[in-house]
Write a protein that binds this DNA or RNA. Sequence first.
DNA 1: ATCTAATCCTGTAGGC
DNA 2: TGCCTACAGGATTAGA
Length: 273
Amino acid sequence: MPELPEVEVTRLGVSPYLVEQRVTGLVLRRAGLRWPFPADLAQKVVGQTVQSTGRRGKYLLIVFKKGTLIIHLGMSGHIRILPIHTPAQLHDHMDIVLGEQLLRLTDPRRFGAVLWHDAADGAIEQYPLLQRLGMEPLTEQFNGAVLYTATRHRKIAVKQMLLAGDVVVGVGNIYASESLFISGINPYTPSSELTLARYKKLALAIQKILADAITKGGSSLRDFVGVDGQSGYFQQNYYVYDRTGLPCRKCNTLIQQVKQGQRSTFYCVKCQK
DNA sequence: ATCTAATCCTGTAGGC
DNA sequence: TGCCTACAGGATTAGA
């Protein structure tokens, strides 16, 4: 379940194996994932050298001189660095070969995506799918005022606003519930009704929880090079997510699970008003 | 301009 | 034991 921290941890993990390395081959084992793979992808990347890696929201960027490879992990995707000629298994959809190693994309549910943009680094914001994305939460510019000003006419529940990604990116279903608990906000509150002061608390909660998750995930970066892939989210200690019917860690009230826009929301009715 | 619902797909958990 | 259904996840898209 990659949210922003897992994508960033992935980027940090694979980056040393990519940057300044030349792509020597590309293997596609199906026509595409969520969307078809770019038709001429091999021509675009094979022979090219990776300049840098980046991230925009939950999109992983692999930057070449002539363009940028955009990878989205969907909800079940993950990437590993493996020795060349490692046999592919079910759901291994793409290999980017770099000399003696390869970057392998695995995604059982195929909600992920592999895209190409014919412009290097700076111009990536022009890519259609990235154009409507909200602000990066882990930047100096992001704060409560950003949330406040963007939501003056938004009646949508604050939980669903966070998830929508057009105000702030990278907050998935887990961290939406968690950040609202930390800031003491009821997930049903219409976005336009929250005060600046409460949005300041929410913005700080989002930044802290995402940064902490990256730190924790970063401690298992080596997992991206090897057989087992997935990185250290197991020990995550959530306040409300997936704790339906269990006592709130602050007040012992039983945690409620509800549906908002087809998605589960977890919250404490006493701590979150 | 906003918002809601449907959609993509597979693995897993729960009910019978 | 095995079948069946519901659900989980992100984010675009179409429709209200």
